[in-house]
């Protein structure tokens, strides 16, 4: 490929990823430079002695937040996609109604309740929040994977089998690629919701971006709350817009 082509591709990629990049830059700037905004927060919270949350630096909080969300989402994706695949196979079809029902109903169950149930069993710390996020994050993934797999035109599957593809070949080469946009949309919902919900972890002793918020509520410091909320919001926007670009790329081949 010539130099011109390389540059053209780089330009296109940059244009394509402009929005997620913008959010990422903002997020990074805020993470390292929160203290620079002291005057702004001073204006919000004029009476407090301190306006910048400093019990842990934002880099650490962001890192812990990301870790919890990543572990939970990764597990949720693995388990959710596998479960949906299993119940759409011939051998697992007896469980399809059950799983489909749980997946569509489970979303009405509030994450706080999941957390409240998890703490007595798992104790305080990072584990209960991961479990809560995992359980809650499973639902959109299972639901969307089921919808994606079941939404494939039957004639395509008939042709695939009729041509002599094995079950595994049909799954890998036909079903998953065709269902991918819908599955990806489910993962996107799951991850975005997890990023917001993970803040609840601060209430059970898992330190992350929820800390400033909880601390702000406890101490009546609006500036702390704002800082936590801003960080979580920017993180959610960065991840969500990244997924959005990924989905668009897939659909337009």
């Amino acid at each position: 490929m010539n130099e011109h082509g390389v540059q053209w591709r780089a330009n296109r990629a940059l244009r394509h990823w402009r929005l997620p990049l913008a959010w990422l830059v903002l997020l990074t700037a805020l993470t390292v430079g929160m203290a620079e905004l002291e005057s702004v927060f001073r204006w919000v919270e004029a009476d407090s002695r301190q306006v910048i949350y400093d019990r842990a630096d934002f880099v650490t909080l962001l890192g812990r937040h990301l870790l919890v969300v990543s572990v939970a989402s990764l597990l949720a994706t693995l388990i959710g996609v596998s479960a949906a695949i299993a119940v759409t196979r011939h051998a697992g079809q007896d469980f399809l109604p059950l799983v489909a029902q749980i997946a569509s109903m489970g979303q009405t169950f509030p994450p706080v309740a999941v957390l409240a149930l998890a703490v007595p069993v798992l104790g305080f710390g990072t584990l209960p929040i991961i479990v809560a996020l995992l359980l809650y994050g499973l639902l959109p993934i299972v639901r969307n994977t089921l919808a994606g797999l079941q939404g494939i035109e039957p004639s395509i599957l008939e042709a695939a089998r009729g041509m002599g593809m094995s079950g595994g070949q049909v799954l890998r080469q036909v079903e998953l690629p065709l269902a991918a946009p819908v599955i990806l949309a489910g993962i996107r919902t799951s991850v975005t919701v997890s990023i917001a919900t993970a803040a609840l972890g601060a209430t059970v002793g898992a330190s992350n971006l929820g800390d400033p918020i909880i601390s702000g509520i406890v101490n009546g410091n609006t500036a702390y709350i704002l800082q936590g909320a801003l960080m979580i919001g920017l993180l959610a926007l960065t991840v969500d817009s990244t997924f959005e670009r990924l989905t668009v790329r897939r659909i337009s081949r």
């Binding site: 035109e153 004639s155 395509i156 008939e158 065709l178």
Partner: peptide, 8 residues
């Protein structure tokens, strides 16, 4: 088959 079943 009638609906071709081509992989889109």
């Amino acid at each position: 088959i009638q609906s071709t079943g081509l992989f889109p």
